[in-house]
Amino acid sequence: MDPFVVLVLCLSCLLLLSIWRQSSGRGKLPPGPTPLPVIGNILQIDIKDVSKSLTNLSKIYGPVFTLYFGLERMVVLHGYEVVKEALIDLGEEFSGRGHFPLAERANRGFGIVFSNGKRWKEIRRFSLMTLRNFGMGKRSIEDRVQEEARCLVEELRKTKASPCDPTFILGCAPCNVICSIIFQKRFDYKDQQFLNLMEKLNENIRIVSTPWIQICNNFPTIIDYFPGTHNKLLKNLAFMESDILEKVKEHQESMDINNPRDFIDCFLIKMEKEKQNQQSEFTIENLVITAADLLGAGTETTSTTLRYALLLLLKHPEVTAKVQEEIERVIGRNRSPCMQDRGHMPYTDAVVHEVQRYIDLIPTSLPHAVTCDVKFRNYLIPKGTTILTSLTSVLHDNKEFPNPEMFDPRHFLDEGGNFKKSNYFMPFSAGKRICVGEGLARMELFLFLTFILQNFNLKSLIDPKDLDTTPVVNGFASVPPFYQLCFIPV
C-alpha cells in the first residue's frame, strides 16, 4: 500500500478516535471549553503556568470542569470545598494515580508514587510505618536530621561569610537525610558517588519541569519514536535504579534480621516474612523503585522550600529577627534545636507554614484518578478519569488567608500570638494520596531553619526591599529566582 495512503488512514483513525473520546459521556461530565481534535484544549493552557490557566477557566466554568490534554480527559478541581469533598470525603474513590506514560515506562507500575490498587496500598502502608518507626538502627529519624543539620551548619561556616548561592548546600542536606534513612549512610558533600546522585536528581527535576515532558505524557507515541530530553530522564532513572540495586545486594549479604539498620533492611525482612506468599507485593523490584521514589520526592521539594525560605527571610528581616528572638528565648545557644521545641515556638512554626503556603511549591499536585465511576456534584466521572487538583486555589484562598499574595506569618497566628491551624494548609496535597514523607519534610524544615538561624545572621547583597521573591514557574514547580547571601556567624 502507498505510504501516503497509510499515513492518511492513520491520521484519520487518530482523528476519529479523538472525536469519539471527547464526545463520549460529555453530557455527564462537568462543563469545559470545547476541545480541538487530537490536541484537545492545549492551546487554551499556558504550559509554563498551568495553575494560572486553571484559575482563569474556573471563573468561566465553575469549581469543577473538564479539560482535554491531547486525548487525555481530565476533570479539574478548583477551590477548597471541591478539593476537600473529593480528596477527603470521597478519598477512596479519588485515590488513584493519574496516567503518566513516562513514569509507567520507567517504574513499570512498581513503587509508591505511580503505583495503584493493592500494590500501592500495601507499599504505602509499609513505608509510612517504617518512616514513623523511630527505632531503626537504634537511631531515631530526628537524630538523623539533627546530625545532618549540624553538618549543614559546618558547611555554611566554610563560606566564611562571603557571598554564596545556597542551592547546592541546601540540596545536599535533605538528600543526605533520605540516604541515611534508606542506606544507613550519609555522605560527605564532596563524595563523588553522592555528587553523581545529586546531579541525576537535579537533572531529572529540570527535565520533568519542561513543556516537552508534558507533551510526551499527552502524546506517548513520542516516547519511542522521537529524540528528546525524555530519553535522558529514562537513562538517569535507570542509572539510579541500578545503583540502588547494588546497595540492596550489599544489604542482603550483611543484614541482621533482628537489628534492621535502615529502610532497605526493613523491606528485606518483610520480604523474608512473605516469601511463601506468591501474591506478595514485597519484591526486589518494588524495593528498588520505592527507594528511588523516596529519593526523588524527598530531596528537591525540601531543598527548594529551604532555598525559598531563606530568600523570604532576607526580604523580611523583621520576621527573621522575631524567629531568632524566639530561638534565643526557648533554645538558647548551648544546645541543639529539637522537635519538642516546636510546641513552644508558635512564631517560628507560623513562619515555616507561611513559607510553604506562600511559595505554593507544587501548584497542581500530582494528578489523581478516580478508581470507579463516581457521581460528584451531579456529574458522572468515569472510572480512570484523571483528576487535576489546584492546590493554589486552596493555599491562596483570600477568605482563609487575607492578602494571600503577601508573605505574612500572621496567617497562622491567632490574636494572642498562638499558632493557628488551618484546614486550607495543603502543600502536601490531601486525602489518601497525601505525601508519604510529610512528617519528615516538616521535621527537616523546622530543624534546618532553626539550626541555621541559631548559628548565623543572614545578610543580603542588596537592599532587602529590592529582592525579587516572585516565583519562577516552570510548569511543574514554583522555584525561587537566583540569589546570593552571606551567612554571618553569630
Rank of each mutant, 00 (worst) to 15 (best):
D408E: 08
I60P: 04
K235E: 10
F239V: 09
E203L: 05
V351Y: 05
I381G: 00
E148L: 00
F114H: 13
P37G: 05
R186C: 04
S393F: 01
K275A: 11
N277W: 07
E318F: 09
H396L: 06
L395D: 03
D243T: 12
L77A: 02
V472D: 10
G109H: 14
T364D: 05
Y80P: 07
L156I: 13
N455A: 08
V83T: 06
I45C: 05
T450D: 04
T469D: 15
F168A: 13
L77G: 00
I269K: 09
V323M: 14
D265C: 00
E250Q: 14
K200S: 09
F425A: 05
K275W: 07
Y483I: 06
K432H: 14
H396E: 04
A430T: 13
L314C: 15
E241K: 10
V153Y: 02
R377E: 05
Q252V: 08
F114W: 07
R333H: 11
T348I: 04
Q146D: 08
K375T: 11
F4Y: 14
C10I: 13
H368E: 01
L29A: 07
H99E: 09
L152V: 08
R261Y: 02
M271N: 03
E438Q: 08
P409R: 00
P480M: 06
E253D: 15
E246H: 13
G431R: 01
D468G: 11
K459P: 02
M136Q: 15
L237D: 04
P163G: 08
E281T: 11
L361Y: 05
C486S: 11
R186N: 04
V394E: 02
S209T: 12
K59E: 11
M426A: 04
I362K: 13
I215D: 03
K59P: 02
L67A: 06
A297V: 07
N259F: 08
I19M: 15
L458R: 03
T364A: 12
V374K: 03
S140R: 07
L11S: 11
V76T: 04
D341E: 03
L237G: 07
L440M: 10
D463R: 08
I257N: 09
R21M: 12
D341F: 07
G62D: 00
I257W: 10
A86N: 02
E81Q: 15
L294Q: 01
L11R: 01
P480Q: 07
V370A: 13
G171V: 06
L458Y: 02
N378F: 03
C266A: 14
P63K: 06
R139C: 13
Q340A: 15
S140A: 08
L201A: 08
E285F: 06
L388I: 13
G437K: 01
R125N: 13
V490C: 14
C179G: 07
G109R: 09
L14R: 01
N176M: 04
P480D: 03
T55R: 10
P227N: 07
P166K: 01
V75P: 01
S12H: 09
I205K: 13
F168N: 11
R132Y: 14
T305K: 02
S127R: 01
L366I: 15
H78D: 02
R150N: 09
